[in-house]
Design a protein around this nucleic acid. Sequence first.
RNA 1: GCCCCCAUCGUCUAGGGGACUAGGACGUGGCCCUUUCAAGGCCAAGACCGGGGUUCGAAUCCCCGUGGGGGCACCA
Length: 515
Amino acid sequence: MNSPARVRFTYDFTSQRPSFHPTMMTSPARVRFAPSPTGRLHIGGARTALYDYLLARQTKGVFVLRIEDTDRKRFVPGAEEEIYEALAWLGMEWDEGPDVGGPHAPYRQSERGDIYLEHAERLVDSGNAYYCFCTPERLARVRKEQQARKEAPRYDGLCRRLSSEDARDRKLGGEAYVVRFKTPLDGETTGVDVIRGEITVANATLDDYIVLKSDGLPTYHLAAMVDDHLMEITHVLRTSEWLPTFPLHVLIYEAFGWEQPAWVHMSVLLNPSGKGKLSKRHGSGKSHAVHPLDLKELGYVPEAAVNWLALMGWSYDDRTEFFNMPDLIDKFSLAKLSASPAAVNFSKLDHFNGLHIRSFSEQELVAKLLPYFHAANLSVTDEQLWRVVPLIQERIRTLDEAVDMAGFLFRDGVRPDPQELVGKNMTPAESASAVRRSIEVVQEFDQLENDRLEFSLRELAEKLNLKVGQLFGILRVAVTGQRVSPPLIETMGLLGKSIVLERLESAQEALNSLK
RNA sequence: GCCCCCAUCGUCUAGGGGACUAGGACGUGGCCCUUUCAAGGCCAAGACCGGGGUUCGAAUCCCCGUGGGGGCACCA
């Protein structure tokens, strides 16, 4: 028996580990991301797409987008468009796909019906599949009986025993049918997974899976295998949810006489608690953003989302964690994919978001921030934001926080709670007097120059026998309306003398009203 | 119930028989810096699931147990 570790060295397509293979994989890979348009793109799907994309770009290969829409009942209008939008936001362009076309078009499975039908026939003709006329009702009944007997629910093989003549006649007679794969009754099937090595399963535990439904459309088992082969996919990346049917897929490839692709079954993503597959809801009732476009909405930048996604189940070395897309394209390696499931960690997303925000040029950040101010109904110009960005760049973790932090700069007035204007360990009267003296200081200026203003205000604090923090605290609330703000002096400079005076005066009034 | 996969700090992970007193990151706590909040710097607590083997030597290889995850549809 080969241990997984040995298997890894045995197969060429795993030759990505630099320490063992000096040359990274250089032959161009053809990889596909094949989502179903049954809902919104999930961060799990986004991660799969990312790894696909990285492998394609790293090897100068091709990234294919294929839409697996063979389930008409679960089809969600608009889902396909959202997938496009999410991938685009994350920064992944596909080379072939429904919208851009390509040498293996069409890329929407619902448009490839004839291909699957023909392949299903081929399987029947070669004795690897058979027509089944059992009704859903009968199947449900059989399943129920099996469960009552504590057996694994499985097709009982009734139609497998039909003669091919009988089957043909019934089919020609117009009876509804499906095509089932004729899984070997005994023996075992071994598939080779890049991450886990050999996976062997007794054929007897496999079912005679339906590969073509009565509506004439294929199930995943047929459609994906046929397309992956026809589209010349070299690496199949999917989550470990497919491990149970992996042997079936190997068998289907064998039945057609096709060469197996490199199979890569990635671990699934778990809820932050580590309990269960990632879902929208969690034990506490809180919900996290599990869709890339929600992340966008919440003020996360795609650079951070990609960085975060990449590190869930993949790692580079024992210290490097900050990656941009080009770094990832350069450093990604299948050999470093983790076999164990990963609980998602949203606080780490926050961390990466802060890191990436701080890594942007001021120009980049201005461009990214502008829409958030506009969404908050603040009319802000490029030039204005340009002066604000240096004050907030290292203070925000998400883009929308910029509005909370600096929105007061663009609003007409501020209405602080009078209580908040009272300085620490001070009375309202003392606070009002401090404001009055500050007004006098500010009035001395033609222009509020940071250095001089700070000097004068510190001097004032000393004269008033106040700590700098006490005075600045009062002024901060007076001028920004907030307890937390960008640095006070710079903020006052940005606001300008007249607005500062206006706000200080109204603060003084508010304090007087407290007496 | 049956089948499959997985197992290092709370979480993500490094680790490929000796370099392990087990490294990093997030989070947490403390200190420094400081006009608030951040950022930054320093420090701390915190893990090899258990038991058997193999070996001079095991976090690392094997087996069993346990735990976790996934799957058992005319869904993908």
